[in-house]
Structures are given as C-alpha cells and as structure tokens.
Computed example of a mutant assay.
Amino acid sequence: MQTATHPTTAAHRRDEGYFPAGSMLRRVQAQRAVGLLYGQRALSIGAIKPLNYVGTSEHTAGKQAPFKRLVRTGLAFETIYFGTRAEADKVLAYVHKMHERVNGELPEDAGATPAGTPYSALHGPLMLWTVAVMMDSAETLHELLVGRLTADEREALWQDWRRFALLFGTPEEVLPADHAAFRAYYAAEIAAADAHLTPEAHHVGRFTAYSIPTRAIGRPAMEVHNMLILGSLPPRVRELYGLRWNGAQERLHRVTAAAIRNGLAVLPGRVTEGANTAVFRSVAAEERRRLRNGIRTPHVAG
C-alpha cells in the first residue's frame, strides 16, 4: 500500500493528519451538509459499475445491515479526513488487509460485462471509480448546498482526492492529472456501455440512498433529503434506476437548495461544520434496533 512520506517539519511532528486545516478536502468534508449526504449519493452512483458493486457485495457479511456498513465506512473516512496520520494509518492498514481478500469473477452477465470477468479491490481502474464517485459527490453537494467553488478550489480539491486515492494504494498512473481530466474521465464513465445495475445493485442503491433508518428525521425532512439526492444525480443514473424527474421537480429542487444554502450561510460554524460521528452512530444504532425487532431496511418503490 502506498502512503505519503512524513516530512520532518514541526507541523508534521505534531501530526496534523494527511489533510491538515486549510486543505480543500478537509474544508469541503467538514461541511456537515456535504458529509451527511455524499456517501449515500456516491454509493448509488458507484453501483452502476457491476465489477465494483458485485466485488463488494460478494465479500460482505453485512447485507442485512447496509447502513451499518455505510456508517463504518463513513467513520473510517472521517478518521482519514480529520484525524492524525497515526489514526489514519491504522484505518488504511485495516482496509488494505480487507481489500486483499476481495477478488473473484463476475458470476453472470451484467449488461455489457460478461460472466467470468475478473475483479479485484486492488485493481487500479476499480479503485479510481470508487474515489471518483466520492469526489464528484463532495464537489456536487458543496456547490449545491454550501456554495460554488472557484476553478482553483476545484483543482485543489481534486489534488487532495488524488492524495486520498494514493493513500489506499491506487496506482498513480490511473489517476487523472488535473480536475479537467477528472471531469472528462467521469463523464465518459457515466456514459460508458458498461454502466449497468444488477437487480441487487438496483435494490440496494435505491433504498440506501432514500431510506435512512432514523427516528430523528421526520417525513417532511426525509422528503427534502430524497429530493436533494435525486435531483443531484446525473440524468443517466436516474434513468438506470428508473427514477422519474421532470421540470417541476427540477424547479423545486433549485429553490429548496437555494433556501438551504442561504440558511446555512447565516448559521455559526460550530453548527454547520465538523464530523458527523454522532449522526452516523445513531443511524447504525437505529438499524440494529429495527433488525432486533424483525424490521429490515425497506425497499423503496418508485
């Protein structure tokens, strides 16, 4: 696994982490509006690549508790975004050990990808796609709910995500060199012939994005949450899921997002910024409670 070297400056001796205060990735992910939504959005888009989805699904024991897995991933990533290098290195070592076991072959045809196609969690292009949907979701949701980024900020954000990818061992040669190259790559992947949802990916991608197990969010707030994610998806992804979207929804989406941006802008940073650890853990706890009572995370009908 590739990891960044530790410069011997006083700042790094204090172990400020791989993404110290002021780095674009940290600035964006510290916005709670981004941190709360980007993972669900990234998962629903990431599922359109069968090798990525099936490789993950075939090597997880948590199918009955998808939010527990999502929360575990979210907490691990927040450790890398906000923690010390020592804390991040523990997470990276653990994830690398898990990824070494994730390899196999596609058991059946999945759209344009034939049965028998090999996959590995350590295969560069698959690693890139995993990071790409996270970067795109972070950038998209920041611009939707917090504010537009300048061209220089977008470039700095992608360079930080490149570093994030390298920490996980992604080969540098598969990573787009700059933000413009990343955007070209991402658009091509969304439009590619191999974009396809297996039946399980269709099911899991939808209910994970639109059905949070929580008692803290009422139905009206949940409907706003769902509309924000749905409206932010690339049109082709909505089509693959069979999700309806029209002009009236688009107008309501724009108005709602603007209202949230304006509201967040006047709130103090202690409210709008920081890790989402407490929220993530409450979601996992509620899913556990429901499972104990025989209630599975539901399928969401379109």
Results as ranks from 00 to 15, higher is better:
Ala76Thr: 10
Ala132His: 05
Ala21Leu: 01
Ser23Val: 00
Arg154Gly: 03
Met24Ala: 08
Leu228Glu: 07
Ala192Cys: 10
Lys63Arg: 15
Pro7Leu: 03
Arg215Tyr: 10
Leu37Ala: 06
Glu155Met: 04
Lys97Asp: 15
Ala47Asn: 06
Ala201Leu: 09
Ala248Lys: 12
Asn103Cys: 13
Arg69Trp: 10
Gln2Thr: 13
Val279Lys: 02
Thr140Ala: 14
Thr60Val: 14
Val54Cys: 12
Leu43Asp: 00
Tyr119Cys: 07
Lys49Glu: 14
Gly62His: 13
Arg14Gly: 00
Ala257Ile: 12
Lys68Pro: 03
Arg238Leu: 03
Leu149Met: 12
Asp109Ala: 13
Thr117Gly: 03
Tyr241Ala: 05
Leu240Tyr: 03
Gly247His: 12
Val28Met: 05
Ala221Asn: 12
Leu252Cys: 14
Arg154Gln: 13
Pro298Gly: 08
Gly124Val: 05
Leu75His: 06
Arg41Phe: 07
Ser57Cys: 07
Val131Lys: 04
Met135Tyr: 11
Phe207Gly: 02
Leu264Pro: 10
Leu51Ile: 09
Leu240Ser: 04
Thr150Tyr: 05
Asn262Glu: 14
Glu153Gln: 15
Ile217Ser: 01
Leu43Pro: 00
Ser44Glu: 00
Thr8Trp: 09
Thr256Arg: 14
His142Asn: 13
Ile295Asp: 07
Gly205His: 06
Thr3Gln: 12
Ser137Asp: 09
Tyr210Met: 13
Phe182Tyr: 12
Gly22Tyr: 01
Ala275Glu: 11
Tyr94Gln: 15
Arg13Thr: 00
Pro176Gln: 10
Tyr185Arg: 06
Asn246Gln: 09
Pro234Asn: 10
Arg162Gly: 04
Arg101Glu: 15
Thr3Phe: 08
Thr60Leu: 15
Gly269Asp: 14
Phe182Val: 07
Ala165Arg: 02
Phe164Val: 04
Leu264Asp: 10
Ala258Glu: 15
Pro220His: 11
Ile45Gln: 04
Ala193Trp: 03
Gly74Val: 06
Tyr38Thr: 11
Val54Ser: 11
Ile229Glu: 09
Pro125Asn: 03
Tyr185Ile: 07
His123Ala: 10
Ala301Phe: 11
Leu75Cys: 05
His96Asn: 13
Phe82Tyr: 10
Thr113Ile: 09
Ile190Ala: 12
Gly83His: 04
Ala181Asn: 11
Arg26Glu: 00
Leu106Ser: 04
His196Arg: 06
Arg163His: 15
Leu267His: 06
His179Gln: 11
Leu51Ser: 07
Arg14Val: 03
Gly124His: 06
Pro50Val: 07
Glu189Phe: 01
Gly55Thr: 09
Thr150Cys: 00
Leu141Ile: 11
Leu36Tyr: 08
Phe19Glu: 05
Pro171Thr: 08
Val34Cys: 04
Leu197Lys: 06
Pro50Gly: 12
Lys63Phe: 12
Thr117Pro: 02
Ile80Pro: 05
Leu36His: 08
Val266Gly: 04
Ala201Lys: 06
Ala275Asp: 08
Glu108Ser: 12
Gly231Trp: 03
Arg215Val: 14
Ala259Pro: 03
Leu128Ala: 04
